[in-house]
Design a protein around this nucleic acid. Structure first.
Lengths: 169, 169
DNA sequence: CCGCGATGCTTCAGGGTTAATATATTCACC
DNA sequence: GGTGAATATATTAACCCTGAAGCATCGCGG
């Protein structure tokens, strides 16, 4: 059980671990729990208030930071999903008139995706609410600890990246 | 950009944030990045070595800790997914002979899911490899920092849970 | 005992996701 | 210039996931 006294009736992914289990595993499950909780909250509010999904929001968010547009492959890397996935999400957004898919003159294999004015407007409206939601979810953690957590996660990211890069055995 | 010097060509979900963005948002994106990286690594190895998916592994993992079996609703809560989802995953596992779905005598609406001997055997084989993968992914983080991270994530979990519970505005 | 809200599960539609495969284009090298 | 490897994207099958709707059962208050 957790040393942190869960509320009486609470049951979630972590509860399954007996104390004898190894600590890297427990750390991973706690990380996953936190991530899932935040993601679920944000997704449901995004749906409720804007009838939008998280991946669509994510894609538009990338484009908002790159007014010159991004190629499909760039979107794929930045969103950390496969290329085929981006194709489908972009298709939707094009159909809704929120982004465009233009052929760049220098490479006829590629496509450059850009926000339309309507897309940018819709995104900005969502982004404000989104930031407030996230701030609220993290508000229970003091600023000092948020900074510590941020730094520790940077190290974890390095560890995971290094390990995953040599993923043979 | 990150203060942690990413490798030259690296691009991912976090790179999009300019320094002017607010820190709760950056913390959330870093958390999500870490979680996604670990998840992707584990999923691909689970698939490669055992031809199994993460949700199936997760469900079996719950059952291994509860030899008396779990009801569908319990599985749903522990796995943090909706009930309809569990139905489909359990269906698959029943079809593969790895779990059983029994009707308890006291409640004819419910089903109790249990690992079969074959299911338990298959799970134990995977669990060993799984634990080693996770340990490897987290190995770059010293034990002290792993403990700090674990404690901070406990607080974050509380913060998120408290905030999400009153999710109206 | 009977009605009715709550509970446990399933079904379905709409998306998201991956891995594998296919096609077109570019690039490097000869 | 031509050939072949690498690159950019699209397509598809199979699976995961949610939210909404529906059905059966439970249990409780009258």
């Amino acid at each position: 059980m957790s040393e942190h006294a869960p509320a009486p009736g609470r049951v979630d992914r972590e509860s399954r671990l007996a104390h004898g289990d190894h600590e890297a595993l427990r750390l991973w499950l706690r990380l996953l729990t936190c991530s899932s909780l935040v993601e679920a909250s944000v997704r449901s509010q995004l749906r409720r208030d804007f009838n939008c999904t998280l991946p669509r929001f994510d894609l538009m968010s990338q484009l908002e930071r790159h007014p010159e547009g991004l190629r499909m492959g760039e979107l794929s890397r930045r969103m950390m999903v496969t290329g085929g996935n981006v194709t489908g999400i972009a298709d939707q957004l094009v159909k809704e008139g929120l982004v465009t898919r233009e052929a760049p003159p220098d490479d006829r294999r590629a496509f450059v995706v850009k926000l339309t004015p309507a897309g940018r407007k819709a995104f900005l409206r969502m982004a404000g609410a989104h930031e407030a939601w996230v701030a609220r979810l993290f508000a229970g953690l003091p600023a000092v600890e948020r900074r510590q957590l941020h730094a520790l996660l940077a190290k974890l990211k390095d560890s995971v990246t290094a390990s995953a890069r040599s993923e043979a055995a």
